[in-house]
Amino acid sequence: MGLFSMTKMVFRSVSRKPATLMYPVRPAKSAAAFRGRILIEPLKCIACRKCEKSCPTQAITVDVKVRTWQIDRLRCIICNCCVEDCPTNCLSTENIYTNPMTVREGIEIYTVPPKPERKKETVDNSKTEE
């Protein structure tokens, strides 16, 4: 219908608040269900290797002997498979992204508690990040 049929939308845009956000000055909006990154509670981990097997990109490595749980943030596609398969619910997904990085790193290693031989709980809060 002729020239300037955009007028209505233009005036609506002017009268409204802008649709864009000044990221990173203002934080990006994200839904509660958004898959941002995988978190682990190392204390609950029993090093069963189920997450390692379910990971389609092989981003997770679990060392049963040294008792470490390792994730490569750059390989991880945050598909949530490991979280669904974890028997102790020690894995979870957070709706915040991994921070951007300027060099190729992103492997995070967590120490998990040793295999419980008897019922004796150790409070081991050690967490090393690389």
Binding site: M6, M9, S30, A31, A33, R35
Partner: peptide, 29 residues
């Protein structure tokens, strides 16, 4: 340009719903 921006502004509603229901904006998984 302004038509382009407005089309993508509307697309944002769709992406928000996808994000809220699947957890991913573009790759839903």
């Amino acid at each position: 340009e302004s038509l382009f921006m407005n089309a993508w502004r509307l697309r944002e509603h769709i992406l928000d719903d996808l994000e809220a229901t699947t957890g991913g904006r573009v790759i839903q998984g």
